[in-house]
Simulated scan of single mutants.
Amino acid sequence: MSAPERIPPRSVTTAELLAKGELKVRGQIREASNAVLYCSVSYEGQDAFCVYKPVAGERPLWDFPDGTLAQREVAAYEVSEATGWGLVPPTVLRDGPYGEGMCQLWIESAADSELLALVDDEEPADGWKAIGFAEVGEGRTALLVHADDARLRRLAVLDAVINNADRKGGHLLPEGQDRLYGIDHGVTFNAENKLRTLLWGWAGEPLTGEAVETLTTLRDGLASGGPLATRLAELITAAEVDATRARVDALLASGKHPEPSGEWPAIPWPPV
């Protein structure tokens, strides 16, 4: 008698692990303005660490009255995935120990990757883009710069699409030499223009050919009945989906990175 065929274990996707796995709270990230819990998640022999942000721990925001911040975090992930750039860690909406919330894969950032700097020069050096001047104490100012990095440039385009009102330096997580993630997308997708970011270095410059191609793909997905529009409609309001579509159209029409409007502070505070 021949031995029975051994069936290999099924491969669990990251999305399945996050959505269906058992969450165990390991600690709290206390510097966050809303409840952010560091957790482990286990499912069918697979394990990972993740961030769990329960809706019950969100502070109400007068200018984001609809839906939840958790839903907006998931919506940002969906747009990131539609670009093909993979700029937002895998993120799902699920039930957890403190009710429904956002669950996102934990990313270990590469500590030696320098993306932001303060310099004493009037102009940025090669390989850097100017953000603006910042006070550094004792009446001194320094030029705040970010790396002229293709990964950051893609993130700047994503932020313009999702209308990110809070792109800080601490939200940039490089992983190795090639991968960069952006996190903390709770204040996004407002129907009014609220873009606030550190990534203004390309403001007014032409979009790359890659960005134009990606935005064209997004426009198709955001068309009425399109897959991205349908998914976003489950997470944000119809007006916010329409505004997202309009932002993509505006970027394609101008062919340029957006510039600060001058109507409000363009850089979030604190910037890091």
Rank of each mutant, 00 (worst) to 15 (best):
Glu31Phe: 10
Trp269Asp: 04
Leu215Phe: 06
Phe64Val: 06
Trp62Thr: 06
Pro97Trp: 13
Gly262Gln: 13
Ala111Ser: 14
Tyr98Asn: 09
Ser109Phe: 02
Leu115Arg: 14
Glu78Arg: 15
Ala165Phe: 02
Val187Pro: 10
Glu210Lys: 08
Thr188His: 01
Glu210His: 07
Val36Ser: 14
Glu108Lys: 13
Leu172Phe: 10
Ala76Val: 01
Asp184Arg: 08
Asp120Pro: 02
Gly137Ile: 05
Trp62Phe: 12
Pro124Met: 08
Ala165His: 00
Ile29Gln: 05
Trp264Arg: 15
Arg219Asp: 15
Thr244Ser: 14
Leu218Cys: 03
Pro65Thr: 05
Gly127Met: 11
Glu263Pro: 01
Val88Asn: 09
Ala211Met: 12
Leu158Gln: 09
Lys194Asp: 03
Glu78Gln: 13
Trp269Leu: 13
Glu78Asp: 10
Leu37Asn: 06
Ala160Asn: 03
Val187Ala: 09
Glu73Lys: 00
Tyr98Asp: 13
Val41Cys: 08
Val136His: 00
Ala130Phe: 09
Glu210Tyr: 00
Tyr38His: 14
Gln104Glu: 14
Val36Glu: 09
Phe64Gly: 07
Val241His: 12
Asp126His: 12
Gly45Lys: 08
Asp220Gln: 13
Asp112Pro: 06
Ala19Ser: 14
Glu138Gly: 06
Ile7Phe: 09
Val157Ala: 00
Pro174His: 00
Pro97Cys: 09
Pro265Met: 13
Gly99Leu: 04
Leu180Trp: 07
Ser261Ala: 14
Ala266Leu: 00
Ala19Glu: 13
Asp112Arg: 14
Pro124Trp: 11
Ala35Phe: 04
Ala253Asn: 05
Asn164Trp: 00
Gly225Ser: 10
Ala147His: 04
Thr237Tyr: 08
Val36Lys: 06
Ile267Phe: 12
Leu215Asn: 10
Lys24Gln: 14
Ala19Ile: 06
Ala203Tyr: 07
Asn164Cys: 09
Phe133Cys: 08
Ala32Pro: 05
Phe64Asp: 11
Gly170His: 05
Ala250Asn: 08
Leu18Phe: 00
Ala130Asp: 03
Ala165Met: 06
Ala56Tyr: 05
Trp202Ile: 08
Gly221Ser: 05
Thr83Trp: 08
Ser113Thr: 14
Gly137Lys: 02
Pro258Phe: 10
Arg10Ala: 10
Thr14Lys: 01
Pro8Gln: 00
Trp128Lys: 01
Asp184Glu: 05
Ser113Ala: 15
Gln177Leu: 11
Val145Pro: 02
Asn190Val: 03
Phe133Tyr: 13
Glu58Phe: 07
Ala32Gln: 12
Trp264Thr: 02
Ser113Arg: 15
Arg10His: 03
Val272Pro: 01
Pro9Thr: 05
Ala211Tyr: 00
Asp63Arg: 03
Lys24Met: 04
Asp178Leu: 02
Ala266His: 08
Leu222Pro: 09
Val272Thr: 11
Asp120Glu: 15
Leu143Phe: 06
Ala15Lys: 04
Val161Pro: 03
Ala211Val: 02
Ala233Cys: 10
Ala130Val: 01
Ser254His: 11
Trp85Phe: 11
Val241Glu: 09
Ile107Val: 15
Lys168Tyr: 01
Val248Thr: 06
Ala19His: 04
Ala150Arg: 01
Gly99His: 07
Thr197Phe: 09
Thr14Asn: 02
Thr244Lys: 07
Ala35Gln: 12
Arg30His: 10
Ile29Pro: 11
Ala191Asn: 08
Glu175Asn: 02
Ile162Ser: 03
Asp220Tyr: 04
Ala246His: 13
Pro97Leu: 11
Pro60Ser: 11
Ala142Asp: 06
Cys50His: 07
